[in-house]
Design a protein around this nucleic acid. Structure first.
Length: 826
RNA sequence: GCGAAAGUGGUGAAAUGGCAGACACGCUGGAUUUAGGAUCCAGUGGGAGUAAUCCCGUGGGGGUUCAAGUCCCCCCUUUCGCACCA
């Protein structure tokens, strides 16, 4: 009843594996196509999102394989990280054991779906032969000055007991466990991604990335161009530098705003103990620093502050202005100081009104004169300068440059650029990650582990989860080492690397997984990279994808490869949705891929996932929907199964048959080839390609009793059937191979290549024209394809049902759209 | 608040400015019996009509055009991202 998918799928999976079909070899004479799906976390189970993602990638892999490309589609596991450690704690096992077990399970599941992965290049980031190169690269970054150790206020997750990068904080909560993140001052290792901020803004070297992702990264990097202005503190050698995008408002600056973390404020807190108001200031600073970051930086939290008792000098007019300590200035943006211009900035306005600080209008609105006494809000738009001495009368735009130029001459300021992007803190206070290859020696300070001592392996014998502490700090044998420099007693760095380091260059390791001498050979990198098509979820737009671009550029700059970008084309695939929500255990709407494969086969699952919606949109899973895909494959099976003899005998003869035999079916055959090719290559839209194949199958099965056809007709029928495996291969590869064999072929489908269509079979000799009158369809005619334009128009005017609309009316114009319609204007 | 994307039948969705709803699900009626989540046939946006045919219809309102789901302007809704960024 149902086609024997289980037997078929096992048979062809074995065959592909035996033939090493997907094992890629570096071959300069062949055009390469590197397809990569974001590798999964080693959770131990594939979910529908994976099946959807990998079905897209596999379709492309097999399509380009058929087209004769040297395709490469590797797979591996992102296997370091907190969940494994937490799992191990709960289940009283070891993260390594749990991870390796999970990988075995997942590999088994992958095999069931039959994806064309090159398993000879498999990697797993938690294995020393991978993470030793994390350490090696960390050292190269260090040598280049891209690793720094800084003290900073960092996002700390109490639940996970670790620091998080800004990118890993979502709405103030940990991206892993959802617990509120707190601020904690710590010393950390940072990678200087900000050194590459400018280049990361440049997307000219990628071929095709979604605009959305480019915009998200651009906003995240947050470049702004402005001026740095120096405000000296009288009677000291202190200078407060501020960054502003509005130097045109400098004459309106009536106070200086500093955050409590500002070094000057910290200094004052130490030495001003006897000054009046000290207690107040100290209390305010402590309260503000301890306020939750989200609460403090939320736009609608009230602006508060306290006068510091100190003043500074506005360099343009030498005015003495008070310095306020405030809760609305951030230490880690710009210079950590703001020149407050209440008349022209919303925040400063609110603050000045609250504390009754002076305001001065220096930008006049061209349309409506501003008046301090009546202003309800700051005027933040640009305008004409007033109260600005020699700059009066200039417009904002011109004055920005003029004022900055003047400051540069007087050495009181300079043009400057700042970014929102912060350096990437990579230290994690947890066990299950790459050890940072650093030794701390009391005598020599920070010493790098020599290359020949890499990898620094994670000690296996640790007490994971016994305390809240990082187990590495308790692993005495591992922790205590000799300093490589002086030979004295020293200790290892116990922080491990953020797992995003692992995924920042794995696409490059894949091309040379087993290289023991270097992370990958440059020669191979220059052939295989960049990845031609990268596929994964949008959630990585500002994290993984940006880190990987950063890494790639550094790899280039240290001479390991030559390309500028890691991923030439990026597809962000949608999520799998069920009952209006993302599948998740907590919602109880999870569909297990293995259950579906058991019931309907891997091919049906793939076809359904690809058919349900275009790849970049969410897929709506519904249990009825998959039946449609299953019925389609069954109908196809029955067609070939019951006509195999005819197809075997007559398929080779199709090209010799007169063109007019079963013309419509022939048209369907060749048109479908064209449609599938264009949908994949030009639009990467698999749902319409599959719909076209379904439609073609409907056309073929509309022909009843093929056995009673004439010889020529049998040949055309056979051609129509035998083409299907070749255009279905990348969606339902197992069934396609089987059908192809049933049709009498000994080769595998990809060897036959993607079929060519014949232009002459998709030419129609009669054409249907729609006749529109005032934009509405009022009739139709069928004319021979070679009918002259004038004749078509003439016939259109005479057509049935048209007469009653144009009778007695003046026909002003007749528009002919060749091959489509005639529009009559009356 | 700022920015981006989207809004089409009962459902998932199709439509280089050119017949809106391909393909599929679901549903209705019929055939068949092997009673399976089977197969086959017919129908299926709303309304009027025996029918030919006609009217209405792509979130709402304007506009451009012989012709608009598609292009332009305004508005509404939803989703996503950013959010005191000086």
């Amino acid at each position: 009843m149902e086609y024997p998918f289980e037997k078929i799928e096992r048979k062809w999976q074995t065959k592909w594996s035996e033939e090493k079909l997907f094992q890629a070899k570096t071959d300069k004479d062949k055009k390469k196509y590197y397809v990569l799906s974001m590798f999964p976390y080693s959770s131990g189970a594939l979910h529908m999102g994976h099946v959807s993602n990998y079905s897209i990638a596999d379709a492309l892999t097999r399509y380009y394989l058929m087209k004769g490309f040297n395709v490469f589609q590797p797979m591996g596991y992102d296997s370091f990280g907190l969940p494994a450690e937490n799992f191990a704690i709960v289940n009283n096992t070891h993260p390594q054991t749990a991870t390796e077990d999970n990988i075995k399970i997942m590999r088994g599941q992958f095999d069931r779906v039959g994806f064309g992965f090159d398993w000879s290049k498999e990697l797993s980031t938690s294995r020393p032969d991978y993470y030793r190169w994390n350490q090696w690269l960390f050292k190269r970054f260090y040598d280049k000055g891209l690793v720094v150790r800084k003290k900073a206020y960092l996002n700390w997750c109490e639940e996970c007991q670790t620091v998080l990068a800004n990118e890993q904080v979502e709405d103030g909560s940990c991206w892993r466990c959802d617990k509120q993140v707190v601020q904690k001052e710590m010393e950390q290792w940072f990678l200087k991604i900000t050194d590459y901020a400018e280049e990361l803004l440049d997307f000219s070297k990628v071929i095709d990335w979604p605009e959305r992702v480019k915009t998200m990264q651009t906003n995240w990097i947050g470049k702004s161009v402005g001026t740095k202005i120096h405000f000296p503190v009288p009677d000291t050698d202190q200078v407060i530098k501020v960054f502003t995008t509005r130097p045109d408002t400098i004459f309106g600056c009536t106070y200086m705003a500093l955050p409590p973390e500002h070094p000057l404020v910290v200094k004052w807190l130490e030495k001003d103990k006897d000054k009046p108001g000290y207690f107040n200031i100290k209390e305010f600073c402590e309260k503000t620093i301890n306020t939750d970051r989200i609460e403090r930086t939320s736009e609608d939290s009230p602006k508060e502050g306290v006068f510091s008792g100190h003043y500074c000098i506005n360099p343009v007019n030498k005015e003495k202005i008070p310095i306020w300590i405030t809760n609305y200035v951030l230490m880690d943006y710009g210079t950590g100081a703001v020149m407050a211009v209440p008349a022209h900035d919303h925040r400063d306005f609110a603050f000045a009104r609250k504390y009754d600080l002076p305001m001065r209008i220096v930008i006049q609105n061209i349309e409506k004169d501003l008046d301090i006494r009546t202003m309800q809000e700051a005027y933040v738009d640009e305008g004409i300068l007033v109260n600005s001495k020699q700059f009066d009368g200039m417009n904002s735009e011109a004055s920005k440059k003029a004022i900055t130029d003047r400051m540069e001459q007087e050495k009181t300021g300079e043009a400057a650029v700042t970014y929102k992007l912060r350096d990437w803190g990579v230290s994690r206070q947890r066990y299950w990650g790459t050890p940072i290859p650093i030794i701390k020696c009391d005598k020599c300070g920070t010493v790098l582990v020599p290359d020949e001592d890499l990898p620094v392996e994670l000690p296996f014998e640790v007490e994971v989860g016994k305390t809240r502490q990082n187990p590495l700090t308790l692993a005495k044998e591992w922790l205590n080492v000799q300093c490589p420099s002086c030979g004295g007693d020293a200790k290892r760095e116990t922080d491990t690397m953020d797992t995003f380091v692992d995924s920042s260059w794995y696409y490059a390791r894949f091309i040379d997984t087993h290289n023991r001498e270097e992370p990958f050979s440059k020669q191979k990198a220059d052939y295989w990279l960049p990845v031609d098509q990268y596929i994964g979820g949008i959630e990585h737009a500002c994290m993984h994808l940006m880190y990987a671009r950063f890494f790639h550029k550094v790899l280039r700059d240290i001479g390991l490869l030559s390309s500028d970008e890691p991923f030439a084309r990026l597809l962000t695939q949608g999520m799998v949705i069920k009952d209006g929500a993302k599948m998740s255990k907590s919602k109880g709407n999870v569909v297990e891929p293995l259950y579906m494969i058991d019931r309907f086969g891997a091919d049906t699952c793939r076809v359904f996932m690809l058919f349900a919606s275009p790849p970049d949109k969410d897929v709506d899973w519904n249990d009825e929907g998959i039946m449609g895909a299953f019925r389609f494959l069954n109908r196809l099976w029955r067609l070939v199964d019951s006509n195999a003899d005819i197809i075997k005998q007559y398929a080779p003869k199709a090209s010799e048959v007169p063109d007019n035999t079963l013309k419509d079916l022939r048209y369907s055959t060749h048109f479908t080839i064209k449609k599938v090719k264009e949908d994949i290559e030009e639009r990467m839209q698999f749902n319409t390609a599959i719909a076209a194949i379904m439609e073609h199958l409907n056309n073929v099965t509309a022909l009843k009793e093929p056995a009673s056809l004439s010889e020529n007709e049998k040949a055309v029928f056979s051609e129509a059937c035998v083409v299907i495996p070749r255009i279905l291969y990348f969606f339902a590869p197992h069934l396609a191979e089987e059908l192809w064999e049933m049709c009498g072929n000994e080769s595998m489908v990809h060897e036959a290549g993607f079929p060519e269509y014949c232009e002459k079979h998709i030419q129609k000799d009669t054409i249907n024209y729609v006749i529109q009158i005032k934009g509405k369809v009022r009739g139709r005619i069928t004319v021979p394809a070679d009918t002259p334009d004038e004749e078509i128009k003439k016939q259109a005017l005479e057509a049935e049902n048209v007469g009653r609309y144009i009778e007695g009316k003046n026909v002003k114009k007749v528009v002919l759209v060749k091959g489509k319609l005639v529009s009559i204007v009356i």
